[in-house]
Amino acid sequence: MVRIGAIVLNVSDRRRAAAFWSQALGYESAANPDFLVPTDPHAPRLHLDEDDRTHLDLWAADEDEQRTEVERLIALGARRVDWEYPPDADFVVLADPDGNLFCVINCGA
């Protein structure tokens, strides 16, 4: 089953957001400065992004689980979103019944 792996926050200033959220949540900077990681290995990381909109990244263990979960989520009421994917995309963009976007990511890719 998928889990919330990351919360993508749309921010206007990554440094300011990183300073705030790391102190607010006790998260630490990752090797990639766009990410803050929790000390609890089960908590989602934060992805600070100045271009993308705020959304959830749901993580699947591999391609088979990703495919199964996408089908399951669609059966629950999600819908595929017309998206321009890069050739090596490891994610599928869906929308919940209210139109909120989220990604299902193949973490084994």
Score class of each variant (00 low, 15 high):
1 M>C: 08
3 R>W: 12
3 R>D: 10
4 I>V: 14
5 G>V: 00
5 G>I: 00
6 A>K: 09
7 I>N: 01
7 I>M: 09
7 I>Y: 02
8 V>P: 05
9 L>Q: 02
10 N>D: 02
10 N>S: 02
10 N>P: 01
11 V>N: 07
12 S>W: 07
13 D>W: 06
13 D>A: 08
13 D>S: 10
14 R>I: 15
15 R>K: 14
16 R>V: 12
17 A>N: 12
17 A>T: 10
19 A>P: 04
20 F>S: 06
21 W>M: 12
21 W>T: 11
23 Q>M: 09
23 Q>F: 06
24 A>V: 12
25 L>T: 00
25 L>D: 00
26 G>D: 06
27 Y>E: 05
27 Y>F: 14
28 E>Y: 03
28 E>V: 11
28 E>F: 07
29 S>P: 14
29 S>A: 15
29 S>N: 12
30 A>N: 04
31 A>K: 10
31 A>F: 07
33 P>D: 14
34 D>Q: 13
35 F>D: 01
37 V>G: 00
37 V>D: 00
37 V>A: 00
38 P>W: 05
38 P>K: 03
39 T>Q: 15
40 D>L: 00
40 D>E: 05
41 P>N: 03
43 A>I: 01
43 A>R: 01
44 P>C: 11
46 L>V: 13
46 L>F: 15
47 H>N: 10
47 H>R: 13
47 H>P: 01
48 L>A: 04
48 L>M: 04
49 D>R: 03
49 D>Y: 03
49 D>S: 13
50 E>N: 04
50 E>P: 03
52 D>L: 12
53 R>Y: 06
53 R>M: 08
54 T>A: 11
54 T>I: 08
54 T>N: 05
56 L>Q: 04
56 L>F: 13
57 D>V: 10
59 W>C: 02
59 W>E: 09
60 A>F: 11
60 A>D: 11
60 A>G: 12
61 A>M: 12
61 A>F: 11
61 A>R: 15
62 D>N: 15
62 D>L: 12
62 D>W: 13
64 D>T: 10
65 E>V: 14
65 E>D: 13
66 Q>M: 15
66 Q>N: 12
66 Q>F: 12
66 Q>T: 15
67 R>E: 14
68 T>H: 06
69 E>S: 15
70 V>F: 09
71 E>P: 01
71 E>M: 08
72 R>I: 07
73 L>P: 06
73 L>Y: 05
73 L>V: 05
74 I>H: 08
75 A>L: 01
75 A>E: 01
75 A>H: 01
76 L>M: 12
76 L>I: 05
76 L>N: 11
77 G>C: 09
77 G>I: 11
77 G>M: 07
78 A>G: 07
80 R>Q: 12
82 D>T: 04
83 W>D: 14
83 W>P: 10
85 Y>R: 06
86 P>D: 06
87 P>Q: 08
87 P>L: 05
88 D>V: 12
90 D>F: 05
90 D>L: 10
94 L>F: 09
94 L>I: 10
95 A>Q: 09
95 A>D: 02
96 D>A: 03
96 D>E: 02
96 D>T: 02
96 D>F: 02
96 D>I: 02
98 D>H: 08
98 D>K: 06
99 G>Q: 03
99 G>S: 01
100 N>Q: 04
100 N>G: 01
100 N>T: 05
102 F>R: 03
102 F>W: 04
103 C>V: 05
103 C>L: 07
104 V>G: 08
105 I>F: 04
105 I>R: 07
105 I>V: 14
106 N>H: 03
108 G>I: 08
